[in-house]
């Protein structure tokens, strides 16, 4: 016992240190949300990776079962597809917008035959062309965002200048203030982000605000393009630059819609007379 006391008093600095330090760390972890979150996370990482490992061992044992189930499901799906093809002819145009605008826009469904996202100028190829009524300069959208503009068409294919291209410029508006700017890919290398340019400096912009197409260009108004993730990147001018996260996921595009503006000729003719006068 005496030796224990001697030991404790000799190294008392270390023991006091441990006590005080532990108290401080407990305070940190209990009261600061960041450290609490990462404390729990790091323990979750251990638990999680353990379960993942166990699962990967277990899944081997169930492989035969899983195979059996998948083949059965395949047979079932194949039967259904055959029935559907016989019952329904292929759908090739749907309407996506308001009934007021129905007279103005028609949509053509196409599949993406080729796609690139990692180049400086990205293009897509669609499996429908002029035979299906696609023309140069039409807009291309998906169910949740904007894809690009038709560049060239052949009889059965068309190439699309993707939004991820330095020359693509699309007119957009902000959700709350309704001011319009132009959507460009800008200096981004990341296919998930783009920039909105030409928004005047005095406009108050919130993070997370949604961005829609304005209806001035090839696209119908009100298609969501993305939401703002970074504000106030000034280019030194009297305009704001906003970084937005695109709703379109360019890395797994499959079905797209080509927007056919039925009144485009009328609009262009009218605008041409303005230029002359």
């Amino acid at each position: 016992m005496k030796n224990l006391w001697l030991f404790l008093s000799r190294y008392n600095a270390i023991f006091w240190f441990i006590i005080f330090f532990v108290v401080a760390i407990v305070l940190v972890v209990r009261n600061n949300s960041y450290q609490r979150a990462s404390f729990l996370n790091s323990s979750n990482v251990m638990v999680g990776s353990f379960y993942k490992q166990v699962n990967s061992w277990k899944s081997y044992l169930a492989l035969a079962d899983a195979n059996e189930k998948l083949t059965q499901e395949n047979v079932l799906l194949r039967q259904q597809v055959q029935n559907m093809i016989q019952a329904n002819p292929v759908v090739d145009s749907v309407h996506l917008v308001d009934s007021i605008e129905q007279g103005r826009y028609a949509f053509i469904i196409a599949n993406v035959a080729n796609n690139s996202i990692h180049q400086k100028s990205n293009y897509l190829t669609l499996d429908k062309g002029s035979a299906d009524g696609i023309e140069r300069g039409m807009g291309v959208i998906t169910s949740n965002g904007v894809v690009g503009i038709v560049l060239n068409t052949s009889a059965h294919f068309s190439s699309v200048q993707s939004l991820l291209h330095p020359d693509t410029k699309i007119s957009v508006t902000l959700d709350t203030s309704k001011v319009f700017g132009s959507l460009v890919w800008g200096g981004n290398i990341d296919p998930r982000f783009a920039m909105v340019r030409d928004i005047p400096n005095h406009i108050k912009v919130k993070k997370g605000e949604k961005v829609y197409t304005s209806g001035y260009s090839l696209f119908p108004a009100g298609i969501q393009v993305g939401h703002i993730v970074e504000t106030g990147i000034t280019s030194g001018e009297s305009f704001l630059d906003l970084k937005i996260k695109l709703t379109t996921n360019f890395s797994n595009l499959n079905h797209v819609y080509i927007v056919k503006d039925l009144l485009v000729k009328e609009k262009q003719e009218l605008e041409a007379t303005q230029d002359n006068g």
Binding site: I14, F17, F20, V23, I25, L27, V28, N31, N32
Partner: peptide, 15 residues
Amino acid sequence: DSLGLHAAACVALAL
């Protein structure tokens, strides 16, 4: 606004 953070560092400094 970082309860315990500087306290821990100061205790280490004392040691």
